[in-house]
Design a protein around this nucleic acid. Structure first.
Lengths: 347, 347
DNA sequence: CGCGCAACCGTATGCGCAACCGTATGCGCG
DNA sequence: CGCGCATACGGTTGCGCATACGGTTGCGCG
């Protein structure tokens, strides 16, 4: 272990001078500084941030607690977060909550124990105890993607508008002539699930569609349970003519179910969903979806956390980014409507 | 900040007893232990791992240095790594190398400074200085995805076979009747680029295809430069009738180029690539590709690092996982061949 | 020539913890 | 009764660093 002591000995100065050279924290004679740098390079010294952290109380670290890192949706957000956090001089500690309140609590505990300067969290369905911990330990916190009732915890939130975009998805489907439209909802309790369901109900209402409660099923936010939900939907005595799915995995699940049932999209059943896909234009059918600004989501979250770390007394802020409807082919062609974003990619 | 001291005071014992209770590191009288735990819960104490790390010299942390976290390929690997690392009681520190030797060095320096117990690295094209650092600091290292000459650094490597699978890709294309087959190669210097190019050349040779050097172009491993490479290829006086792309992003780039040129796949030009896609079966055309076992890649890498941390004197090991050809439609239908994995998904 | 002040540098301390070492107590046994 | 040993616990140190504080120069100026 090459320590500052060793460098100091090598350079013929005291350990404190080495520290000051490294941190530019007081005036140093040019020759002295040069000697120190030379010694640093000769010895291959790397400043030990563990010791530094213990001393300063700051780890220059940000905790990122999310579920399903392998979901391409989160992947892009994570990428943007890493970029921004690192640009602001910190490092990302990555933990997976697996969308389970218990594991979320443990994950955040881990981050707290590691003295992260702040935490980026995509909260699970029951984040109360996690919020408790965060508040007791005064950890600057920013919620990503999902909104939640933070109680007395002063945390910022960054996400997209969910209600209106899903309603617009329903508008679009209705405009294509569908009247019995179903919704595959996400994991109950999640902010996004709640809001998107509300958006669906708003859309059903304002388009005068069939409000049959049988048309709303819980998809559990993942592909498998959505597959089952869609199968159930299509098994109804009076099945829907179109389906709205609450996120990307559920859209795929529904897609597979339709395919296994020998149903074509959009000829037999319309299918639209929340979340766009990388390379979505290569899909057949080309899915009509609501797309989120993933990169901005990550960047904004990181920036806001940065600000909150700098001033923890900041009032809680809520940022809603726009989610935009991307019209492609999967809702059918019956009544081409106008005024919407048409995807410019090749057929 | 509630420290061990505070807990000790609260419980009426010494700080050292609190430490021993927490770490189960010596016998404690049941009542004493209970009192300590009670004090811990009352005060909301969380063991400070910064201080512990300084003392023990182990951070229970693993550094993960890769490029382009937002690439779905790496996303799945990262997910698997996080799962495995966390299962083995450590936390992941995430840094992005951006595939640039300079930034890679800084990223690894960062990880070393944070005293990671070990490092998982997807090496850039010129990793020599990074390897130097790793060796000087004796950091247990495992290379992921890309193989590289580690010199005197005793690092393990985990990746897939590249040569034979790419050659099989060429076999397949040749079997479909193509004779002028082009290759879009990845960033020069990357182990994967080198090996896949070798695989292509092997395939060209053993199938007696046109060895025209103009048919091999550098795609830079990303979508944009592959787009340009593919455009150049199709602008040739005697253009290829099929293209093999070196990774997923380059396959997409080529796809877009063909599409913009008004060329259909596979009718006008055949296109196959390395790396499968999530939801690849929804693509039209359904791409024939070589798929990597991403989850196993991550899991194995994490496990091997674990073992190397436990015993740093382990000899360097190299693990090659199988990459399997998944035949779909994108190379054309001229001569259906047999004996290969047929993708079972719906047309 | 000597004082003051700036420029430069070293000494010493403590961050919170694990672990070494030492002490106290109780108990069995010769 | 006293020795030896096991059990239970506390005091103390030092991990590597940042930083408060103090010391030592050297130089300008009256």
């Amino acid at each position: 272990m090459v320590t500052m002591q060793a460098v100091a000995r090598e350079a013929g100065v005291s350990q404190s001078t080495v520290s000051h050279v490294i941190n530019r924290t007081r005036a140093i004679a040019p020759e002295t500084e040069a000697a120190v740098w030379r010694a640093i390079h000769r010895t291959g010294y790397v400043n030990d941030s563990i010791a530094r952290s213990l001393r300063t109380g700051s780890t220059q670290t940000v905790g990122l607690a999310i579920a399903a890192i392998s979901n391409p949706f989160f992947a892009e957000v994570v990428g943007a977060i890493e970029r921004q956090v690192s640009a602001m001089g910190r490092t990302v500690l990555l933990v997976d909550t697996h969308d389970d309140p218990e594991r979320e609590l443990m994950a955040v505990q881990e981050l707290v124990a590691r003295r992260c300067d702040g935490i980026l969290l995509a909260p699970s369905a029951s984040p109360a105890r996690t919020f408790d911990l965060l508040e007791r330990r005064n950890v600057p916190t920013v919620l990503v993607d999902r909104f939640a009732d933070t109680g007395t915890l002063a945390a910022d939130s960054v996400g997209v508008h969910n209600v209106e975009p899903v309603a617009e998805l329903v508008d679009h489907v209705a405009g294509r002539g569908h009247t019995r439209v179903a919704f595959i909802a996400g994991l109950p309790g999640l902010g996004t699930s709640r809001e998107r369901l509300a958006g669906f109900e708003l859309g059903v209402q304002r388009n005068g569609l069939d409000p049959d409660p049988d048309l709303v099923v819980v998809g559990g936010s993942d592909e498998q349970s959505s597959y089952e939900a869609a199968s159930r939907l299509l098994g109804l005595a009076d099945p829907p003519s179109a389906i709205v799915a609450g996120n990307n995995a559920m859209t795929i699940g529904a897609m597979r179910a339709l395919s296994d049932l020998g149903l074509r999209v959009p000829e037999d059943v319309g299918l639209v969903g929340f979340d766009d896909f990388p390379w979505a234009t290569l899909f057949r059918p080309r899915l009509t979806v609501v797309a989120q600004p993933l990169t901005e989501l990550g960047t904004r979250a990181a920036t806001m956390l940065h600000e909150r770390i700098a001033d923890p007394s900041l009032p809680a802020r809520e940022v809603r980014l726009p989610a935009t409807l991307i019209v492609r082919d999967s809702a059918g062609h019956r009544t081409p409507d106008a005024g919407l974003t048409e995807d410019p990619s090749p057929p």
